[in-house]
């Protein structure tokens, strides 16, 4: 649904150049909720603004719903009629809502319809319908200043839906909201995704958001996407930073000198099985559990556990092989002089 190829954006100021996007290849499938995470300044906002060409990329292409938007864009800051028409089919919601304070809630939602040239009666019918959809039917005549943050964002979402978009872009839409409100807005996005088949690209710096609504995610660093994929795949990928952030495990990863620390990820049907006791019994070893967590990610049950086996890595090759045979994701995070095949780095936070 959304594909970017080799997307690059260089900001030139008088004295320096900033490469905000450095060859970004992003792919979001139809009907998917895709999250982009990364530290502040990583280029997330630049990326999402490039998707509807609010930011004209220095090079690379953006294709949304089969249309190459970069081909429609002129070379100036002004958008031609073709591009504007394409934008009308891409909804966008903003961190600070960006509602027009001089207009009522209903008039805000009608604005995209005015731009599309709908008649007055048609506009008001559609606006009321959308306000009903986001649960604000009774606030149609209110002004934005009379609403709470969550209500404002609902208006923002209703407005974004006015052009019957197939794609919704959201830049930190919940970052200005409290946790409770965040949850209800995310639920709304999830519902819209399910009920309307809306493809959602959302930018966030909060892993909880990804955990709550995303099917897939990408991690951005210094203008590049360093990993990307369905959450279940990422969780199954050794060394995935997104997975580590989604499931931070407590416990000292280095363990004692003559011990081996192993992270195990359970996915789907595996979660119900008594693997650890099975391991302990089969090999007659003392397994210490350093940390464990169970959660729902992208609508699926996922569990993670950090265990410690006695003895160095070499002595544990067989038990670890057993765990792999059970279809579990295994990661050796710490062992005395063990192979460090991974680097767990934290720091996905703003």
């Amino acid at each position: 649904m959304i594909t970017t190829k080799g997307l690059t954006k260089v900001y030139r100021t008088r004295d320096r150049e900033v490469t905000a996007l450095d060859g970004v290849d992003l792919h979001v499938r139809e009907g998917e909720v895709h999250g982009v995470v990364g530290q502040s300044g990583a280029g997330k906002s630049t990326l999402i603004r490039a998707v509807n060409l609010l930011e004209v990329p220095t090079s690379g292409t953006v294709t949304v719903d089969g249309t190459d938007l970069t081909a429609l864009a002129g070379n100036g800051k002004r958008a031609g009629a073709e591009l504007r028409k394409a934008r009308a089919r891409i909804g966008m919601v903003f961190q600070h809502f960006n509602l027009l304070s001089a207009r009522t809630v209903q008039d805000n939602v009608e604005l995209p319809l005015e731009i599309l040239g709908h008649s007055g009666a048609e506009r008001s019918r559609k606006a009321l319908e959308l306000l009903d959809l986001v649960g604000l039917a009774d606030k149609a005549k209110a002004y934005p200043a009379q609403l709470s943050g969550g209500q404002k964002q609902r208006v923002g979402i209703a407005r974004a839906l006015a052009g019957d978009p197939k794609v919704l872009l959201s830049d930190e839409a919940t970052s200005a909201l409290d946790p409770e409100t965040t949850r209800s807005i995310l639920q709304l996005l999830r519902d819209l995704n399910r009920d309307l088949g809306l493809t959602v690209l959302l930018i966030t710096h909060e892993m909880d958001v990804v955990k709550a609504v995303c099917d897939s995610a990408s991690l951005m660093k210094n203008g590049k996407i360093t990993e990307s994929g369905a959450l279940s795949d990422l969780l199954a990928t050794p060394g995935s930073e997104i997975a580590a952030e989604l499931f931070p495990l407590t416990g000292d990863p280095l363990g004692a000198p003559d011990r081996t620390v192993v992270d195990i990820t359970f996915l789907g049907e595996n979660t119900g099985q008594p693997v650890i006791s099975h391991l302990a019994r089969t090999y007659n070893i003392d397994v210490s559990i350093l940390g464990a967590a169970m959660d729902t990610v992208g609508g699926k049950q996922v569990g993670r556990m950090r265990i410690e086996l006695p003895g160095p890595y070499e002595e544990n090759v067989v038990p670890i092989g057993f765990l792999r045979e059970q279809g579990l994701q295994i990661e050796i995070v710490g062992a005395a002089d063990a192979v460090k095949d991974t680097q767990l780095v934290a720091g996905v936070a703003q």
Binding site: A81, F94, L100
Partner: peptide, 23 residues
Amino acid sequence: GLVEAVQAMGGSTRTVVFKALLP
């Protein structure tokens, strides 16, 4: 942000001026 919002919904510069900036 308001200018950006109007542009994102497909508004022209004219629309930006008459629907967002001036009001």
